[in-house]
Amino acid sequence: MSFFAKVMPFAAVIFVLFPVPVQAAGIGRDTARARAIMTRVDDLWRAESSHGVMVMRVVTAHYQRNLKLEEWSRGRDESLVRILYPPRENGTATLKSGNTVYTWLPRTDRVIRLTSSTMMATWMGSHFTNDDLVKASRLADDYDPGIVFTGVRHGIDLIEIALRPRPDAAVVWDRILVEVDRSRTLPLVCRYYDEDGQLVRSLFFSGVKMMDNRLLPTVMRMVPADKPGEFTEIRYQSLEFGLVFADSFFSVNQLRRR
């Protein structure tokens, strides 16, 4: 259970920021190119700020769940997500500020700060964990990209990039493989592997559309490898960029305001 942070930019989450242009000497051409592609992909979602509405559909062996969520974000460390639907959970909100995640529960009128014990728990009953959201904003610091494949696969001209964790990065994956559509530089799929080389889960991107003058995938589907038939799908209904927020917007006080 439990939630928090920004739902949406799961993409941003995953690809996020490599804001630093390629510079360091000693980085091979491939690495530099991989970095450039990842930066480009990340910039699809990344802006100074964003605001969007999305629906999330969760299908598990035990339940199906449909949520409507509204999201605001600024930079890579601040985000606010509020549940619009279903009514039972309406108003429940999650604030991520740096490494800290707060949840406001209208039913109990309490703000709870999530602790380490809940980090591996599911986020809003989906196949994402709270940890995914917190770690997402650190991808740039945590992984080194490298191109492992260029060419046509399943009929698509694509580039496959492998993200390997840096030695001191606190991430659980041994490897993330990202397929990027070469012509449009849009992500197709991310595959997450553990240290046994086992695929643990896959994140698929689709529904490429123009939103606020950007062409980007508006549908993301997370599929766990060991639970056949289960998935979580996030679909953007609207997305806008370049908003200006008051400094107090991403604060605990704002969290409580409905």
């Binding site: 259970m1 439990s2 939630f3 969760v58 598990t60 035990h62 339940y63 199906q64 769940r65 549940i83 279903p86 039972r88 959970e89 429940t92 949840t103 529960l105 039913r107 109990t108 309490r110 709870i112 728990a121 599911t122 809003m124 009953g125």
Partner: peptide, 16 residues
């Protein structure tokens, strides 16, 4: 005390 959990239907269970 507040309890927060994932309910059987995937929803966010929370109560005082």
């Amino acid at each position: 005390i507040v309890l927060l959990a994932q309910a059987a239907d995937g929803s966010i269970a929370n109560d005082l």
